[in-house]
Write a protein that binds this DNA or RNA. Sequence first.
DNA 1: CGTCAACATAGAGAAATGTCGAAACAAGAG
DNA 2: CTCTTGTTTCGACATTTCTCTATGTTGACG
Lengths: 136, 136
Amino acid sequence: MDQDATCCPGLAAAPLDDERATELARVFKAMGDPVRLRLLSMIASREGGEVCVCEMTPAFDLSQPTISHHLKLLRQAGLIDCERRGTWVYYWAVPGALDTLAGFLTTKQTDLAARRTTGATRQTAGPTAQTAGATP
Amino acid sequence: MDQDATCCPGLAAAPLDDERATELARVFKAMGDPVRLRLLSMIASREGGEVCVCEMTPAFDLSQPTISHHLKLLRQAGLIDCERRGTWVYYWAVPGALDTLAGFLTTKQTDLAARRTTGATRQTAGPTAQTAGATP
DNA sequence: CGTCAACATAGAGAAATGTCGAAACAAGAG
DNA sequence: CTCTTGTTTCGACATTTCTCTATGTTGACG
C-alpha cells in the first residue's frame, strides 16, 4: 500500500503536499537506522530473497526482541514481508519497493517536464525574481 | 562528503557493513521527516535551484527557527547547500546527491553480479537451504 | 499432554528528536 | 550610529525512538 505513495510524480518534479510527504517520510524513517538498513540490505541481497530470522539475529549485538521490532518497522513500511514456515519465519524484500523508491528520487527528464507544467510556485510575497539587486 | 558513502556498491549487492550503514542511515534519517521532505522537494523542484528561506517559511505552520533547524539537518546530510546574499539566504540541492542515492537503492544487474561474487553469506548455523523439510 | 525452541508482543527506562520562545548575529536603510 | 528585517543559535520541554527484560504464541517432538 505504500508503493502507491511512492510511485508517480518524483521528488524533484513538484513540491510535495503534506499528505504525500507524511507517507513517504514513514518509509525513509524506516531506513534511517543503521540496524534496519543492514537488515534490509541483508534481505535484499539474497538471491532466493528469503532470510530466516535465526540467521539475522546473531549478526548483531542486540537482543532478539530488538531485531524483531526492527523487522516489524521495515514490514510496516512496505519494504519487506514475511511468512512462517514451521518453526522458522522467513523474510523477503517486497519486489518493486526499492526500485520504486529509487525512481522517486531520480531527477529524470519526466520531472523536468512536470515541473514546467506546475510553473511558478511562489506562494508568498518576497524576493523571488528580482533578487539580483541584493548582490551587486 | 556523504556522497562517497552512497556511491558504489548498492544496497542489494551485498550486506552492508556497520560503518557504511551508519553513514547512509544519517542521510535517510534526514529524509525521514515530512517537513524536511517537503523542504527538500521544494528546493529540488526549482529550476534555478535556489530558494530563499523567506519563501519556504510561510509554507509551513511552524516557527522560523524550526525551519532553519530542519534546513541545517538537510545540509549536514549533504543533500542541500546554502549561501548568503545580502539579507537573504538561498538554498539549493547538491547536484548529484539525489541521483546517487537513487542509484544506491536500484537493484540493477550490477548488483546481481556483485552478489554472486560475494557468494554464501551464511554467518551462523541454522536452517539455510534445507528449509523445505519443515513445511510438508 | 507436556516440553522445548523460535519469534512476537508488552511494558519500562534511557536517549534522541521536534518544536517553541528568547536572544544573538548579519546586513541594509535612515 | 541606530533601527529594522531576515536568519541562525541557544535552552527548555513534550514526544518519539531504541533497547532491554519478561511474557505470550506457535509449531515440532516425545
